[in-house]
């Protein structure tokens, strides 16, 4: 009786471990399929011309994504300029503030914002920026992306700063440093790697967003660096080419997907390296 119980337990134990392993392996399968597929379909599009040429009309070979690359860069850059100061300031506030109604509401708002569907943020940016300006523009796209970045930056900043030991802050205050200098010269530098990591993660997150750009940055078949005019971007070009009926545009969409994935992957890896090499250590 006892022996059979033990045997049963051992079998069950083995089965359990196998199931967990199997499911874990299954979970990485989609990722590899995606990589494989995008690599297979997209790699052939990748030529030097792909990066420097503008899109060409259907049937004309040699089209590229130069305008989308520049547009994405512009959108992300301006989104960073908008979101970083606010995000870091709010992160500092949440890490330093006493728990009260206000700080709790701010934290909660950031959580809600984080869960907000990106299409809704796109509509909001449309109402706030596109409508008043009377035109689609890179700026409105950046506003939408900045709103999406904000909660990520706030959260990573707060989490990193909470890791900075209170003793360090006390030393600074005890030396007669006013509070704001203590934050600027001690707390923020001590947490800088975490903050940079958060920025990279949030950039990686927004770089592939399409929905908030649909009715803000809108897309543009030409090269544009004017903030007040529509621009193209990688996700938009992928979207527009992918829904087109033409095979050579599909190929361009695959190529652009490939570039986008590599960029996002690189950002994620870089953030890993930074947070590993320069983590807050005391």
């Amino acid at each position: 009786m006892k022996a059979s119980r033990t045997a049963f337990r051992k079998v069950w134990d083995k089965a359990f471990v196998s199931i967990v392993l199997l499911l874990s392996i299954l979970s990485i399968v989609p990722l590899f399929l995606i990589f494989f597929h995008i690599f297979k379909e997209g790699f052939s599009s990748i030529t030097p011309g792909f990066f420097v040429n503008l899109p060409k009309p259907v049937g004309e070979p040699g089209g590229g994504i130069a305008n989308a690359l520049v547009g994405s860069g512009l959108l992300v850059l301006v989104a960073c300029i908008l979101a970083l100061p606010v995000g870091i300031a709010v992160g500092v506030f949440l890490a330093e503030a006493r728990t009260n109604l206000f700080s709790t509401s701010v934290r909660l708002s950031m959580e809600v914002l984080q869960g907000m569907p990106s299409i809704v943020i796109g509509i909001i940016a449309y109402l706030w920026v596109v409508k008043p300006m009377g035109t689609f523009s890179a700026l409105s796209g950046s506003v939408a992306l900045a709103i999406m970045m904000l909660p990520v930056i706030v959260r990573t900043t707060e989490e990193t700063l909470r890791l900075v030991p209170r003793s360090l802050k006390e030393v600074s205050l005890a030396l007669g440093a006013p509070y704001y200098l203590t934050v600027l010269r001690v707390v923020l530098p001590a947490g800088i790697s975490g903050i940079v990591t958060g920025i990279l993660i949030s950039v990686a997150r927004i770089a592939g967003e399409t929905a908030p750009l649909l009715f803000t940055a809108f897309g543009n078949p030409f090269m544009n660096t004017n903030l007040l005019k529509p621009v193209n971007s990688l996700p938009l070009i992928i979207f527009n080419y992918a829904i087109s009926p033409y095979d050579d545009w599909h190929a361009l969409a695959w190529g652009a997907s490939f570039v986008l994935i590599v960029l996002v992957l690189a950002l994620n890896l870089l953030s890993k390296v930074i947070s590993h090499r320069f983590r807050v250590e005391f």
């Binding site: 003793s167 360090l168 006390e170 030393v171 600074s172 205050l173 005890a174 030396l175 007669g176 001590a190």
Partner: peptide
């Protein structure tokens, strides 16, 4: 606090 230096139990270099 500038007039009063403080040294803590755990050494805390920046």
């Amino acid at each position: 606090r500038k007039r009063i230096g403080m040294v803590f139990q755990k050494s805390t270099p920046f």
